[in-house]
Design a protein around this nucleic acid. Structure first.
Lengths: 207, 207
DNA sequence: TCAGTAATTATGCAAGTGTATAATTAGAGC
DNA sequence: GCTCTAATTATACACTTGCATAATTACTGA
């Protein structure tokens, strides 16, 4: 029989899941969660749609896995920045890295937007979001505390918490702006704005 | 005949269009553009789906009209703020209003996210977005220029443009943060962060 | 080399999608 | 009141959606 049944190669579960997750993220960024159809995802991952059901019990589960994957990638990306130097330098490095490509990235902001509904409605995804947010803010708060200590300044825990929240809000907000309007800023302009603003909030210059 | 055909009242074109637009915005905020189906929109507006086609030539057109409506509402909302007082006070009022409810609003941010794809792909909606963004930035830049003049400071046009872009980025970013994380900030906290950050960028205190 | 197994593809289905068109009926004008 | 028009509803259609299940085929290991 001249069956034109599609040839295929067997891959490890891990490789296939990753490919499906990456394809799903691409489509969510481009068209939102609802626009990321199982057929579209399968096509982009070079498999047929049945395979999705083989590795994930539903589209919902794939989307959730993709979100978790993405959020982990985001934290890994910034965790790498600035492990040495003075506290002030590490803080400065964190702000700069967070406001410079590849962290600043239109695709990542598109994903943020595409997932927003889900993170506010689905309890599982809400939890992933909460955890990632807390990770960033706590990391930043620790950097601020260290910089304060180094500078011989003191601040109450409540004050430090407020500073962490405020600095995080500025950085996060600028990150969104930079990804949403990639042509609105010159190279390094976004990071400079961030350093000025965060410095003002903390009460000492980061530039 | 016991025809259970639905009773209805005739309404003006304007009233019906507005009702359909508001219903569409609700659903876009909740479920994104793709989740806002013609049947869902019609139901929320208390009409049947055929009526949408009567007033809009396609779903696409309704969505576009809804986006324009929303963006106009956003500009109207802040245009009202701070028409008198010193330049510095007007600037301060603009920042504060932009970072306080009802301008800061989870639904508005959900709409921002829901429309993001469209504003980056559909040329018509991209233009509406560009215009609204330019309006805000220019408005802010004018306020900054006036405040500089009042304070006896001078700044080149290029410098003013940079300051407008930077201040706008901070405000816009914080606005997104406030709407996305309504419980992360105390009353007035977001506005205070904005005033500190913008003040630092401009080089004089707004507090 | 040759099963056996599970990874992969193919097919089918019911529900939901936007759009097109026909059928009704509310209300304005006389 | 009566007519007529257009605002509104109802129905139909082709297509897409997620999911289920059956049919194949690539690879493992003996």
């Amino acid at each position: 029989m001249t069956d034109d049944r599609r040839k295929f190669r067997r891959e490890s579960a891990e490789a296939r899941k990753d490919a499906l997750i990456l394809a799903a993220l691409d489509l969510v960024a481009e068209q939102g969660v609802r626009g990321a159809t199982v057929r579209g995802i399968a096509e982009r991952a070079n498999v047929t749609q049945g395979l999705i059901r083989h590795y994930f019990s539903s589209k919902e589960e794939l989307i959730s896995a993709a979100y978790e994957y993405h959020m982990k990638a985001m934290t890994d990306q910034t965790a790498a920045s600035a492990k040495d130097g003075s506290a002030r330098d590490r803080l400065k490095g964190f702000v700069t890295a967070s406001l410079t490509p590849p962290v600043v990235d239109p695709r990542a902001v598109a994903l943020w937007a595409g997932f927003l509904n889900k993170t506010q409605q689905d309890p599982g995804m809400r939890e992933i979001h909460r955890r990632t947010y807390a990770y960033f803010r706590d990391h930043l708060e620790a950097l601020i505390a260290a910089a304060y200590a180094d500078a011989g300044l003191s601040a109450s825990p409540a004050r430090l918490r407020h500073l962490g929240t405020a600095a995080n809000a500025v950085i996060d907000g600028l990150w969104l702006e930079g990804g949403a309007l990639p042509d609105a800023f010159e190279d390094g302009e976004l990071a400079q704005i961030g350093l000025e603003a965060v410095g003002a909030i903390l009460g000492f210059s980061l530039e």
